[in-house]
Design a protein around this nucleic acid. Sequence first.
RNA 1: GGUGCUAUCGUCUAGUGGCCUAGGACAACGGCCUCUCACGCCGUAAACCCCGGUUCGAGUCCGGGUAGCACUACCA
Length: 514
Amino acid sequence: MERRVRVRFAPSPTGALHIGGVRTALYNYLFARQHGGDMLLRIEDTDSTRFVPGAEEYILEALDWLGIGIDEGLRMRDGKIEAVGEHGPYRQSERREIYHQYVKQLLDSGHAYIAFDTPEELEAKRAEIPNFQYDARTRMQMRNSLTMPAEEVKRLIDNGEKYVVRFKVEPNEDVHVHDLIRGEVVINSNILDDKVLYKSADDLPTYHLANIVDDHLMEVSHVIRGEEWLPSAPLHVLLYRAFGWQDTMPEFAHLPLLLKPDGNGKLSKRDGDRLGFPVFPLEFHNQKDGTVSSGYRESGYLPEAVINFLALLGWHGTGDQELYTMEELIMEFSLDRVSKSGAKFDYEKGKWFNHQYLQLRSNEELAEMFLPTLKANGIENPDMQMVATVIGLTKDRVNFVPELWEQTNFFFVAPTEYDEKSLKKRWKEDSPRHMTELLELLEGVSSWDAETLDGLVMPWIEAKEYGVGIVMNAFRICLVGAARGPHIWAITDVLGKEETIKRIKNALLAIGNL
RNA sequence: GGUGCUAUCGUCUAGUGGCCUAGGACAACGGCCUCUCACGCCGUAAACCCCGGUUCGAGUCCGGGUAGCACUACCA
């Protein structure tokens, strides 16, 4: 019988969700949807010291923005967090009682033991012995339930002495991990240490224990996570075995890492700051350390562009196709087409994706998104019809919505300065005279549309033998303030007769004598 | 140091023994279009980490190097 596909994304609320984490969530989501399975979200908050307020909300909001839907566990709905499903609670900090039971099971079956060594003692040990590892070779020299009488152990616990529960790794065994992306990985148990599974100090398990117990209880069929987990996968296999759950152990797939664009190493928040691009989906205000991190959303990225970009960082379809909708990704995605090697984060390509998706949005939609930028530049309550029109004229030359301002500002504000380079190249000795004549011509026109104007101005230029380029470029400088922008009749169309004439007069006053 | 993973243009990648004179995309460069700047279109340059082996034939399989990365916590 085929097992129902159930995958999970299990972030820690220790800060903003890293873009690599977003990709992991995406691949999980695609895999679940493709197989008609469930996508779960669980919060792994077993490290109380690293908890950052707001991080959980941030993670859920980011996934919601990107359209990565959650079927079970925690999710964001209309700005509110909700929990759905029968396997809750979905925050590990709320599952203490559950873990107690499983810690006891391991203790009773002899797969785990209690250790009293303090962090300070362990630190001293590591300083004293190079490459010290708490394992089969050293555990009998330490302060634990293996080396102390049972009454002594009980007395210490009753006294409130802090302790941890460690997993007892049997030495010298080749542990096989089957990875859906990398194939068979074999690691000898000798290099594994007796991992801490539970700490009495905060009455919480560590990742390794909580992860295995929850994945089992939540009936997770596939664990798709970052490559940094590959070295501890054998430990997890051993844990499943110790619990007697090897028959329902999930399949593993370890994803390649996202690397920094220059040099080597994992992509970090610092790289984003250094190179000037976001590494987080949404802007994040860290309440713990007061830092603010920029986000893709606030930088003008469209969620579908981020999804497409991320999907292709480590995965590639069978053909040359690069533009995929979420639906297409769900159809095409497969773990055996995921790369094995890390992918350098190519921000430039991300821009290109955004450009592609920006062109697909309607002018009206983009106009709404452009409003904040307009407001920031002092344009309040603009004519939305006009905004949509100028966006239609210029959107093919930008990658991001905010960049629209540089392309359209002259539609909203008449030029007060004239670009020096443009003047040097396009404003000729005869230009003031040409513009004066053009002014007269335009003032007399009765119908103000592109066809009429073109039919009037072009023959005039030809008759006078002024040269189309000479006149039109000077005209453009009057209207725009520089030698750039859309077709000139498109500009006059938006500006209207009155404004066009006003701008020519202004230009004549400002640069007529150059 | 130990263990593991990985290795094709600057970058993301296609490639599963002959279709490879190594394909596509981003970026770069050149041209076309044109009243300008862009967009777009066309084109140019650009790679199989090294050494062996297997084979009639290797980017593709095997071995060994080398390099990069990850892990090596009472973090996840």
